[in-house]
Amino acid sequence: MAACVHETIAEKTVVILDLHTHSIKSDDGRAKVENYCKWIRSREIPIDGFVLTEHRQFDVESDYSTLVKSSGLCILKGSEVETEYGHVLVFGVTEALMLAYHFSSIGLPLASVLESWEQHNAIAVPCHPGRKRVGMQANIEKLGVPAGVRIVETLNGGSRRGEDEITQQMAAELGYLGIGGSDSHIVSHIGRCATRFPGDISNEHELVEALRAEEFAAISMRQ
């Protein structure tokens, strides 16, 4: 589990996290985590940390604790998996969850993901739902509305024109809550979208709890 510097965010009444980022651990990621931190600090990007959601994997190996201390940023780990409804962010990944599912599979059943991952104290959030083919909305047209979805990514920093609007309309119609993430693959794209939480988050478990509390808001910082 990735640790964060508790005291740097404990004094704040809100925490802003970019919930969707990729590093060089993802096949199409070109950003080093250290450079993300340098970039956030030097450009004064108004986020307190980020979640690394590598494609089709959970990065067990990487230890960012030294970087967390030196940067004062909260660095958490999650994953972006692929289901028949498109891509889904997962927060709160545990060893048991990794044993139960092949993260590398590109056809995980969303219903099963949502149901059993809750049992593992993880939370699954369909991302960029307005995107063609890999977004949930396009697949709802083919497969129907999936049961069990509570939160979707309503702001995605990599969205093309109109994609977030499709998501937001879908979220309004179906009563979903929204998070934000930059979907950054290069350093300078981090923090374009993020999620604001009340209180303190310093590890993955607290992130899951904060998502379950349903008191968060997606925010955009795109220029």
Binding site: D27, H55, H87, I106, R131, R133, V134
Partner: peptide, 11 residues
């Protein structure tokens, strides 16, 4: 390298 993924245009 060889790998698969789902993109905007399907598998």
């Amino acid at each position: 390298d060889i790998y698969t993924k789902t993109g905007r245009s399907g598998r």
